[in-house]
């Protein structure tokens, strides 16, 4: 590897792969198809974060690449001797600091939005077990485990999340929801699914041997279908 250019090219390819991968990452399902208002807000925030940080990413990697290409040791060309520039240091301290303050604005707004449950139209309880999920509908007296959660679309659903044994985490990527299920504590989340459909997720906190098999399925149906389903469940079907 005698030539700096060849390896700088390789570096460029490596960084190119990195950048392409970062750009391609919105292939993530929740980014393409956020199913709830919260997930859409998270996506918007993500894009804002990418926009703010892309500038610094490109600047830093770009300068690195240029330096590597330009400043290879050559006979008769001595290294520069400067090693201080107070103004420059102030600039590169202040600008990222300002960028972070700017970015914290939408982050906190989105956080507040996730945090504040609107008036709930259906309350459910989610209980983690090793290694399955139990769902309860207190208003209907319905309790079941190890099968799909069923909720109506368009309704605001609030969930109390807890665990009976170890820490689990209820995670449905398309909903923008992840909430730890802690024994002895009750956490709250809410969601409002835009469209009927089947949504997949799985436990996100290591909970023992079969952590990898602790799946979540949420069937989102029309309110009418939901009423029919819950009536059947009440009858013990």
């Amino acid at each position: 590897m005698k030539n700096g250019r060849a390896w700088a090219l390789l570096l460029m390819v490596g960084l190119g792969i990195a950048a392409a991968a970062l750009i391609a990452s919105p292939a993530g399902a929740w980014l393409l198809h956020p199913a709830t208002p919260v997930a859409r807000e998270v996506r918007t925030l993500f894009y804002k974060a990418v926009a703010v940080t892309a500038f610094f990413f490109i600047l830093a990697e770009g300068l690195l690449l240029i330096a590597v290409l330009r400043f290879r040791a050559k006979p008769g060309v001595p290294a520069a001797t400067w090693h201080e520039n107070f103004k420059l240091e102030i600039v590169w301290t202040a600008i990222p600091a300002i960028a972070m303050v700017i970015l914290s604005g939408p982050a906190f707004t989105t956080m507040k939005y996730m945090e504040t449950t609107p008036k709930s139209e259906l309350q459910i309880e989610v209980v983690g077990h090793q290694w399955f999920w139990e769902y309860r509908y207190p208003k209907y007296g319905v309790i079941f485990a190890n099968e799909a959660l069923v909720v109506p679309f368009g309704k605001i659903i609030s969930a109390n999340v807890t665990s009976i044994d170890v820490v689990h985490s209820w995670f449905v990527p398309d909903f923008g929801i992840k909430m730890d299920a802690n024994p002895g504590r009750i956490n709250h989340v809410w969601f409002q699914v835009d469209h009927p459909g089947t949504y997949k997720g799985q436990c996100a906190e290591l909970c023992g041997v079969l952590h990898g098999q602790m799946f979540i399925t949420v069937n989102v149906v029309t309110p009418e279908e939901f009423e029919r389903w819950i009536e059947q469940k009440k009858k013990g079907a």
């Binding site: 700096g4 330096a67 400043f71 290879r72 290294a79 520069a80 240091e89 590169w92 990222p96």
Partner: peptide, 18 residues
């Protein structure tokens, strides 16, 4: 960031041996 920028400024204008 200060560290990253300072490293970049360190190699900038240097006589780099790879």
């Amino acid at each position: 960031g200060i560290k990253i920028w300072s490293w970049l400024a360190t190699i900038w204008g240097g006589s780099l041996r790879f």
